[in-house]
């Protein structure tokens, strides 16, 4: 007993303030890449280097269309290294959760030059929409929002539908004293029957398809589904093959998508709060 108290007294407060205070994140953290589409001259090196095919190029009739899918991105930084110009940069951004799959996809159109490089940007379509809304939501106390919507704590059931367990590592960390999910009135429950929200990782495998569906059916209405990680969103590095059927939304409807490989605990928290926003909308 003595050791326990002594250690408790020696250990300072370790719980972070996020989301009410800004996240403190290492300078070295490799987050999402960002693209300066107007100044980007040649997307080919980056697309060639990208391990998941998140950067895709289509060419026809002297035009090049470049698609960037943040739902496939694993934050490896290969694109920025291969590109070598300031058009592709690795940022420390991790707050990438969105409510629509399409919000993760950006497309840029260019005329093609003689040498295969890109001319002046001719069109840009970036799906990102929910950012402003999120900020506003974060500023209100999470606890009181949960109270308002549910009248009690938010119960989450985690479902691994085929992941490599990287996402489970980070989801598990939310229970540590550092992130301390319970301080926000959010907790993990043992059964889908007790859950308001399913936090699902992927890629969904053929062998887990039925179990995921049954878990979804066992969750009482109204329910939220949050797809976690590149693989939960799109199948990620595993792609589609004989054993996987892609992202979570191939099997059940998804309310929020949280990119990352795996998403760091802050990013998970950000996405869960986004889902809460959607719940609030429904409650009104």
């Amino acid at each position: 007993m003595f050791h326990i108290f002594k250690k408790a007294a020696q250990t300072h407060l370790v719980t972070i303030g996020y989301p009410h205070a800004p996240a403190q994140i290492s300078e070295s953290f490799r987050g999402a890449p960002s693209f300066d589409f107007p100044s980007w001259r040649d997307a080919r090196p980056a697309a060639d280097a990208c391990p998941t095919g998140a950067i895709r190029i289509e060419e026809s009739a002297g035009r090049r269309r470049v698609t960037m899918d943040y739902g496939l991105c694993i934050y490896c930084g290969q694109c920025s290294e291969a590109d070598g110009t300031s058009a592709v940069k690795i940022t420390r951004n991790f707050e990438l959760g969105v409510r629509e799959r399409s919000e993760l996809i950006v497309t840029a159109e260019y005329p093609l030059e003689q040498d295969g490089s890109q001319g002046k940007l001719a069109g840009l379509n970036s799906g990102h929409a929910s950012e402003g809304e999120t900020k506003e939501h974060l500023e209100r106390s999470v606890h009181s929002r949960i109270q308002q919507v549910l009248g009690r704590s938010l119960a989450i059931r985690e479902v691994d539908a085929g992941s490599c367990n990287g996402c489970e590592m980070e989801i598990g960390a939310l229970n540590s004293p550092v992130y301390d999910l319970e301080r926000l009135g959010i907790h993990f429950v043992a059964s889908p029957r007790h859950a308001d929200m399913l936090l699902v990782t992927g890629p969904v495998t053929r062998n887990m398809e039925l179990a995921l569906l049954k878990t979804y059916r066992a969750t009482p209405e109204p329910k939220m589904v949050v797809a976690v990680g590149a693989c939960g969103i799109s199948g990620g590095i595993f792609g589609l093959n004989y054993a996987t059927i892609g992202g979570v939304d191939a099997v059940i409807p998804v309310d929020v998508f949280i990119p990352g490989c795996p998403p760091r605990p802050h990013a998970l928290l950000h996405g869960i709060l986004l889902a809460l926003g959607r719940m609030e909308q429904r409650a009104i």
């Binding site: 391990p51 490599c164 489970e168 590095i237 595993f238 093959n241 996987t244």
Partner: peptide, 26 residues
């Protein structure tokens, strides 16, 4: 969680396959 990783290795160029190897067990 069988996701056909060994078959998937046959599809990817080696420099990309490293990321697949990292995802065998997170």
């Amino acid at each position: 969680t069988h996701k056909g990783i060994e078959k998937r290795f046959e599809q990817l160029p080696v420099n990309r396959a490293v990321y697949l190897a990292e995802s065998v067990s997170g």
